[in-house]
């Protein structure tokens, strides 16, 4: 249901950006910390656009990894799960570099 809500929000942005043109493809950046399952989002997208002018537009999800930078040892760690901890020295004094993105990057429209 999470992904369904998000699909609707994506649809609103796409409709506005398309300005009446037919959309064939939508590209979304999705950070790993957003707790979005790309396959589920794609499936929900299909349900959301069915019977609307966006029907047939493919949704492509670019997964963006969660990466933290350590204030202690300066290492950068790609997180496999949502615990914000340095993979080198285990410090929790880390800054999130990526992983919270959630944006519509582009749309392909017919001209």
């Amino acid at each position: 249901m999470h992904e369904l809500s998000l699909s609707r929000a994506i649809g609103q942005i796409v409709v506005r950006a398309a300005a009446g043109r037919r959309v064939t493809r939508v590209e979304v950046d999705c950070g790993a910390l957003r707790q979005v399952v790309p396959e589920t989002l794609t499936r929900c997208w299909g349900l959301t656009v069915e019977g609307t002018p966006l029907a047939g537009a493919a949704l492509v999800v670019n997964p963006i990894p969660a990466v933290v930078s350590c204030a202690v040892c300066r290492a950068e760690t790609q997180l496999d799960w949502p615990v914000l901890r340095c993979g080198e020295c285990a410090s929790t004094d880390v800054t999130l570099l990526s992983g919270e993105e959630f944006l519509v990057r582009s749309i392909d429209v017919e001209t």
């Binding site: 950006a17 959630f102 944006l103 990057r105 392909d108 017919e110």
Partner: peptide, 10 residues
């Protein structure tokens, strides 16, 4: 076809 950059946070 044309790709339109949107870059809008959802």
């Amino acid at each position: 076809a044309e790709r339109v950059e949107v870059l809008e946070r959802i």
